[in-house]
Design a protein around this nucleic acid. Structure first.
Lengths: 380, 380
DNA sequence: CTGAAAGCGCTTACAG
DNA sequence: CTGAAAGCGCTTACAG
């Protein structure tokens, strides 16, 4: 009778008198309390493992929960507890393996603690970025993990200033504010460039990401420093700054490789761009590394593939993301400690020399360096 | 004075008397109403663009909203409206470009309509899959988009039976129930296999994904049908069924290629596996396509790379995801129509012949087929 | 056109 | 150990 009443209370007909198939209303604490012959407060207590509940009562409630297939409404819980157990994850491009790996790590860490993660992909568009931050805030997420913070980012700065739990990974703010775990991108750019210089290259090009990101700015800075340290003058015509996009990198590489005096080495701002440089070289019939050396930055899984064997620098993206997620959990559980001092970590880059870099044309291969070329399919 | 009172009402000290830095409580409708000298109901009305609000009042409220930087609490709205404007997206592996592309498409479509998407990555683990479905349900998401439904999936079946808005893409249920947009996977497996048979191959291996997915089962079925149609007997030792994992595929390929009578062609259950087959061939010094032809299924972006040039079948993943997201929006706005008849669409696969497939060793290349090999870096 | 009141599904002091 | 009551931040009939 009770169940029937509940059902009919929710059955309706629309304007045209068509019967509506309402899906069953999920059970509430009230339903459970009624069935267990107790109060909603007590149901809530057993639900939340309060210490002092009489064993018999607990059992009855548990049985009722089971019978009704009751699942607490997290929306209602969020409202009263003032926490949603949801975290926002902001990325610039989920189709970039760097962010996909990071998303995997973040969802894994947070998921194992019962947290949801809302994925927001800004597609490198500041407009979307801003919109997503606003939406996440309205949703009262417990915190936001920025994988794609801009160098100058009013939204991130505002949140930070208001004490909203924020963690950045991969990129950071120009102001240096907030908690972040990032690669030492200057060092990363420096090391990969130095590697190429040590092979004997002197005309080295750099295809950089967008100016409004710390990664692009710092990696380019590392490139400049490496040249300066080796006393190699910077040829500005060999520096192309644009977007973290394959299209842009391919076009830039096509231009660089058809220059009257083309570079003998090209360093790309990230691996996706380096792959596009490889593509451009392939299209032009330019051999790698015989005619041009190519290096990337990130070490996405594909870089290790036998057909690619890209020289690059590992950014330890998954580790960064795991750290960021762990910090977020800490901050959420104790916001005060966090307010006092931000979390900061700079990850050391790891240079990974593979087959896309070698000495420049007409220069002896340094002793000890394998002569394996990228086009060889033979066993190393 | 009001602001001060509000602030002090929230200032606290913890047990040890340490001053706590509480972040400012966000403004509520009550705050706005007070400042605008009206009621919460009226504030709500201008917020939700109700028709009948006096222009002067509307203006005052708008100014108050602006002054207080008021943003409606979506949690509270969700509770009363009984919809969260959040959708769950279930994937098996966000690091697989197929799912990354799909996630991009889903977040784009839903985001542009003000919806959030909670990303849940099951990592091919039924345990996580089940856990995520439960969590999404507790969060009262307006619907769930399954990219990773299992062939036999009690959770999906339960949701479907209860009328919960669900859309599947990529994979579907064995029972055939529910709304889905999927590739014609049988045809996809059939076409890529037929392509290889037409090149003259007779010893063709298939490395399949897990048995509990419709994609793996159907693609393998397509493989069998193609062989049957060509009168080629199936050699079960050339069929390896396991996981959609590079490791598994690489190991299987290593075994297949070192068989006394190795296959002359290997079809992989997806592109990630095909890439691993290429890797294995490279490691063994087996040339592709001269010694063995390799083909995949999916057409991930990397398959088109100059260094890869993988023959494959396009699964139109982004399009599938866009369709799924669009349907979800429709269902949410009119659940009744949906209850009547599910949405269904089967996408035609597109065979994409690139450079990893060619005639078997010792057989003349059919006329008209380019002699370009995968190792050539020259212009096509 | 507008406000007072009830209610969404929970949790949490407050009494007892 | 347990229940009645208040309240989280909204929206929505219901009156006026």
């Amino acid at each position: 009778m009770t169940a029937q009443a509940a059902r009919s209370a929710h059955g309706r007909r629309d304007g045209r008198g068509r019967a509506q198939t309402r899906r069953p209303r999920p059970a509430t604490v009230a339903d459970v309390a009624r069935r267990a012959g107790t109060s909603r407060a007590t149901v809530s207590r057993v639900l939340n493992r309060y210490p002092h509940v009489r064993p018999e009562v607990r059992e009855t409630v548990l049985r009722a929960i089971d019978a009704l297939d009751y699942r607490p409404d997290r929306v209602a819980q969020s409202l009263v507890r003032r926490q949603t157990r949801t975290v926002g994850l902001l990325v610039a491009d989920i189709t970039n393996p760097v962010y996909a790996e990071a998303a995997r790590a973040v969802t894994e860490v947070l998921g194992s603690h019962g947290y949801n993660v809302i994925l927001a992909d800004s597609q490198y568009l500041p407009r979307l970025h801003r919109q997503h931050v606003g939406l996440l805030q309205e949703n009262r997420v417990d915190g936001i993990i920025f994988g794609s913070v801009l160098l100058d980012d009013p939204d991130a700065e505002r949140l930070l200033a208001s004490g909203y739990p924020c963690i950045m990974f991969n990129r950071r703010l120009r102001s240096g504010r907030g908690s972040y775990v990032v690669l030492d991108n200057v060092d990363a750019g420096r090391r990969v460039t130095r590697h190429v210089l040590e092979l004997g290259h002197r005309r080295v090009a750099f295809i950089a990401g967008p100016t409004n990101t710390s990664t692009a700015a710092e990696r380019l800075e590392g490139f400049r420093r490496a040249l300066a340290e080796s006393g190699v003058p910077v040829d500005e015509t060999l520096i192309r700054q644009g977007h973290y996009k394959a299209d842009f990198a391919r076009q830039a590489a096509l231009e660089l490789l058809t220059l009257p005096r083309p570079p003998t080495a090209i360093v790309a701002g990230n691996d996706l761009m380096a792959l596009a440089v490889l593509q451009a070289a392939g299209e032009l019939g330019v051999r790698v590394p015989e005619d041009v050396a190519v290096a990337g930055l990130d070490n996405i899984p594909m870089a290790a593939h036998h057909r690619i064997q890209l020289t690059t620098v590992d950014n330890h993206a998954a580790e960064q993301a795991r750290i960021a997620a762990g910090w977020m959990l800490e901050i959420i559980s104790d916001p005060d400690r966090y307010a006092a001092e931000p979390f900061r970590q700079v990850v050391r880059p790891t240079l990974i020399v593979r087959a896309t870099t070698g000495p420049p044309p007409g220069r002896a291969r340094p002793p000890g360096v394998s002569s394996r070329t990228s086009t060889s399919l033979g066993r190393p």
